[in-house]
Nucleic acid binder design. Structure first.
Lengths: 337, 337
DNA sequence: CTGTTAGCGCCTTCAC
DNA sequence: GTGAAGGCGCTAACAG
């Protein structure tokens, strides 16, 4: 780094603390126009940039917040990141994004790394393979907000979606069209949203007197290839499903790949509804009706909660549920039989 | 933050500097096993995390690098980010991603923000509306690498692609299929890759005795809507083009939207080739043949160069050109006439 | 209205 | 082998 407060002070013939005061525009304390001018001139001349590291150390505050997400390639999480970033900018914070690639080790490392780098708060979409680091944050009373995913066993701040209800409604839509065998393809089964969606799926089947069939359920990893494999298996069942509920954008592509390979037509041969919307879903191989998350609202709300908790330690935790929209792109049709 | 070196030292009955030495595993200086043990015990007991802010201040080194990109929603830039992140992790660095949304103001702010936060180096895909901040970095001898985009007027580190040649080859492919009227749709015309690609386009036309026609060129913004508008205009020309060279993933979706609306079929009615590949391009409305960038290599190379320049100030600048691959997905066919 | 002093948590040189 | 002292750049409390 270049010039310091001291350099500026020397050039302007004042004490460093005076420069500091001018820079921070301290109220009450009046500073003569004359010295102010000299100081600004010196700042300009030296092209002075305050050292935020020193500032952070002194203030015990860095004006940064960390965002830990499992996949920066996901339009859903990127949408949240952008919204959060906008909020941060408004309040003079810098957002540090850390990508865990759905890897628990990386997440734990990211938490401690960001913590020891002095971020003022964290927003985390946890991998949910373990949770001791989360408990540690709670014990430390460190401000953080979970997003998308949630631990039933801990009381924390969280902004999540009404996944159970959304899945219920999506499957209800399929049932109303006459579908009785409905597949379910998702990512890792321990994730909170997956658990909830599966429960919504089960509930609506039960309420409509349809049998729950484990053969129609595939929960593995959120990769294109695994979703493809699962779809192939579903379609090769003796009695294949006539509709599928899909959980995740990349997973959707895996299903589409299988549909192409099996030369099926959506929605004639197969009805599909996918969780997680992209603007791009209209331009997929076959456009896909989706459950759309309000990413902006998730980001905004997460920041709002975090911001409050950064200001005072002893607030009660907030758990906010954001609802979803169904975006119909005609990927569902009446069941053939 | 919780416990400090001092706390650990007090608990272990040693001086803070001894703890510091143990933690950093200082060579030469031998420390008795006994005190080591006491110190490790104290560290564990207090759950001590070193304060990176204090460390950065002292060392004038933060072990962070900043990545400034115009669009975190772009698979291309995200690919680079992931690769860079992997390299950073290997070397014990943390990557801070900053999204400028193709906005020059935000980029300038990001540069100075990251700089004053003490990042050890920067990787920048600049907006290219202005360049004084880049010049400033050069003057300060601050280590940075440009990616994807480049300023002819400055000698800097850069990792770019062979855009001119790639465009040349793509258009040659179309010409060989008999196309004579080939559209060109791109983002902002001041971007280095756009300039280069347009030049490649012009060169290959000239070499094949085809006339360059300004009516077939649309360079505006990298948005879906603008690309859509441009495509509609192209298709409504008295004599519309039989092929289009597209520059950018989002732009590709704009073109696809127009193609759907005009009820055209690819490649029967229209051949298209798009710059910038995604794994997902196979699952678009119509699969699109693309020019694929080696994002991993870009990230790796950028880190390598940056890393060298962070170690010693007076290295000559490196400019590396990474070549591309053509991924054929049958979105081109023989011209009808 | 401005200067003095102390210290955030860490690392490094110099002692002993 | 370990302790003491000083300082990275900044801010805050206290003087004057």
């Amino acid at each position: 780094m270049g010039a310091t407060l001291k350099d500026v002070a020397a050039l302007a013939n004042v004490h460093p603390s005076t420069v500091s005061r001018v820079l921070r525009n301290v109220e009450n304390l009046k500073i003569s126009e004359d010295t102010k001018e000299r100081i600004f001139k010196a700042i300009k001349e030296l092209n002075y940039q305050p050292d935020q590291t020193a500032r952070s150390l002194r203030l015990k505050k860095s004006f940064t917040i960390g965002l830990i997400i499992p996949n920066v390639a996901s339009p859903y999480f990127i949408g949240i990141a952008r919204s959060l970033d906008a909020e941060c900018t408004k309040e003079g914070y810098t957002l540090i994004i850390s990508d865990t690639n759905e890897n628990q080790e990386k997440e734990i490392k990211a938490v401690y790394d960001l913590y020891s780098r002095g971020v003022d708060g964290l927003v985390i979409a946890p991998v949910q393979d373990s949770d001791e680091h989360i408990k540690d944050l709670i014990d430390k009373k460190f401000p953080f907000v979970l997003i998308d995913r949630y631990f039933e066993k801990y009381d924390t701040n969280a902004v999540i979606c009404n996944d159970k209800e959304s899945a219920y409604n999506a499957v209800k839509h399929l049932i109303d069209l006459g579908h009785k065998r409905i597949g379910f393809i998702s990512g890792r089964p321990n994730l909170y949203p997956v658990v909830e969606r599966l429960e919504g799926y089960k509930n609506v089947l039960e309420e409509n007197n349809l049998e729950f069939n484990q053969d129609l359920i595939f929960s593995s990893s959120p990769t294109l290839d695994d979703a493809y494999e699962a779809s192939i298996k579903l379609m090769e069942l003796p009695v294949p499903p006539t509709a599928i509920l899909i959980t995740g954008t990349i997973i959707t592509f895996g299903v589409l790949k299988a549909i192409i390979e099996k030369k099926k037509t959506v929605p004639k041969d197969l009805s599909i509804i996918a969780f997680t919307d992209t603007i791009l879903a209209s331009y997929f191989m076959s456009p896909v009706s989706t459950v759309s998350h309000k990413v902006d609202e998730i980001g905004t709300k997460a920041f709002e909660i975090l911001f409050e908790h950064m200001k005072s330690d002893d607030l009660p935790y907030s758990k906010v549920v954001i609802d979803t929209n169904f975006v119909d792109r005609n990927s569902t049709a009446k069941a053939n039989i």
